[in-house]
Computed example of a mutant assay.
Amino acid sequence: MGKPHRIAWAALDHAVITCADIEKSVAFYGGGLCMAINRLDDGRVEATFGRCKLNLQPNNRHYGPPKNAGRSWSANICLLVEHGLSHVESHLKEIGLRIEEGPVERVGAQGTILSLYLYDPDGNLIEISEYLSHAEKI
């Protein structure tokens, strides 16, 4: 077998979210969360933020490996902000998006984070977080 290999993880590159209504999802991620939107010719939409992206794909459409045909899934993802979670909270409230919980302290990949939780139009749990080293403790 030999020596086990280590994987040098760097950051989230992308996540795929299946969407019941692609236009509602574009409005949520592009309008509500202010991500850049790029529409692809095959019906998918890329929502980019910083060095990461979310691939939004219409429900009941096949993309990727053949074994994905007919499958759909939901997502639970954590999106990091450098600083300014209170600004994000104010923005979400101002545009009428419901915050389910937060701000609350949680444990992130690299330490303690301060998080807000909300759901996207497809019921995916979206956690928006900031490392406490960048925020004031609650």
Rank of each mutant, 00 (worst) to 15 (best):
T112G: 03
R61A: 06
I99C: 08
K93S: 09
S74K: 15
P4I: 09
L85G: 00
F28N: 02
R98A: 15
I138A: 07
R6I: 07
V16N: 13
I7E: 04
S133F: 11
F49C: 15
A36Y: 04
A69D: 12
Y63N: 08
E46T: 09
C78K: 01
P103Y: 05
T48S: 14
I22E: 00
L79E: 06
V81Q: 07
I126L: 10
E89P: 01
V107A: 10
P58D: 04
D42A: 08
G123T: 05
I37W: 03
R106I: 06
D21W: 00
A47T: 08
L40V: 07
A10L: 14
A109F: 10
N59W: 05
F28Q: 06
T112M: 08
N38I: 02
E105Q: 11
G102T: 10
N76M: 08
R71S: 12
R98W: 01
R98I: 09
E94N: 13
E82I: 08
E100M: 10
V104S: 03
H91T: 10
R71I: 07
N60F: 06
I99H: 00
A109T: 14
E136R: 15
A20S: 11
H87L: 11
L125F: 01
E136H: 13
G84F: 04
G84V: 08
W73N: 08
S72T: 12
H62E: 12
V45K: 01
L97Q: 04
G84K: 08
L114A: 01
V16Y: 00
M1N: 11
L92Y: 06
G102R: 02
I99M: 06
G43F: 02
E101P: 02
E94H: 13
L116R: 00
L80T: 03
L92S: 03
E100L: 13
Y131A: 03
P121M: 09
N60H: 14
V81P: 08
E100P: 04
E127R: 06
